[in-house]
Design a protein around this nucleic acid. Structure first.
Length: 270
DNA sequence: TGCCAGGCAGGGA
DNA sequence: TCCCTGCATGGC
């Protein structure tokens, strides 16, 4: 079974799936990517302005459409961003195919807890081991689903030793327990004003400003905040001197991705 | 072999 | 409030 998404524009799978906003996609030699989203497996291949999702069910069409944020006109967004500042226009050229994925909130929370003081390759390995050991199997040849909060909440930090997440293990368990018992309601947080949402997430041990902003952007698809971590502040100072972050409005998240790639291309600025 | 990673918690000043 | 240090592990 497979589904085809038509009229897909401004999506580069490699840029979008390998830029560090998600950690569960594997690239294949033919340019396709396989991964699991919300417990559903698919192997995704670009075909002109179509996106072919092998293994995906027709009933999940809307879920995949939303996951890749295909309802937002990114060319228009880029145009508006570029009008703000010439440097941003330049930055936009570096990653025109990035879309901000609409990820499952708990997966994003745990993934970005794991990301702290870490690198993408190792984050991916830890997430893989977490899913393999504690996620539900979804098919013979497919990776496991991301584990539920309830499943992880029943564990102790020591139980996570096999995933080799180090000091982050107790953070993962604290997050899972707070989500499982309702102390942290991620869907409720989605609707809160940005600062309140961030403060709520920071009640979890191991979640600071950076992790909270990543969860809000990538897990709750909040494009109205702006990451304030040290790296980003440096990037802003270098690239957008004189521009108030609030000017970026709802497109702040997308700007972050452009800045990220711009920074990679211009390490001398940092 | 040693440095460092897309932070954060905890403790002291 | 600010600054400093330790943290587990593994990629490079």
């Amino acid at each position: 079974m497979s589904i085809v998404l038509e009229n897909v524009k401004d999506l580069d799978l490699s840029q979008t799936l390998s830029c560090g906003q998600c950690f569960r996609w594997k690239e294949h030699p033919d340019g396709s990517f396989s991964g699991v989203v919300r417990g559903r497996y698919a192997r995704v291949s670009p075909d002109g302005d179509r996106l072919i999702l092998d293994g995906a069910d027709e009933a999940d069409r809307a879920m995949w459409f939303d996951y890749f944020d295909l309802g937002l006109d990114y060319a228009k967004v880029r145009q508006e961003l570029s009008a703000i500042h010439p440097t941003l226009a330049e930055a936009a050229c570096y990653a025109p195919g990035i879309r901000i994925l609409d990820q499952e909130p708990f997966e994003a929370l745990i993934s970005f807890i794991i990301s702290q003081n870490n690198n993408i390759k190792r984050i991916t390995g830890i997430v893989d081991r977490l899913c393999e050991r504690f996620g539900e199997p979804i098919g013979a040849d497919a990776p496991h689903a991301f584990p539920t909060a309830q499943r992880l909440a029943a564990l102790s930090p020591d139980d996570l030793a096999p995933i080799r997440a180090g000091f982050r293990q107790r953070y993962i368990i604290d997050a899972a327990r707070k989500v499982a018992d309702g102390t942290i309601d991620l869907e409720q947080i989605r609707a809160l004003p940005y600062d309140e949402a961030r403060s709520k997430l920071m009640q979890i041990t191991g979640v600071g400003v950076k992790v909270a902003d990543c969860v809000l952007l990538y897990g709750l698809h909040r494009l109205d905040g702006f990451p304030l971590d040290v790296w980003m502040k440096r990037a802003m100072a270098a690239l957008f001197e004189g521009i108030e972050p609030s000017d970026f409005g709802q497109y702040a998240g997308i700007a972050q991705q452009y800045i990220f790639h711009y920074a990679r291309m211009h390490p001398e600025l940092f």
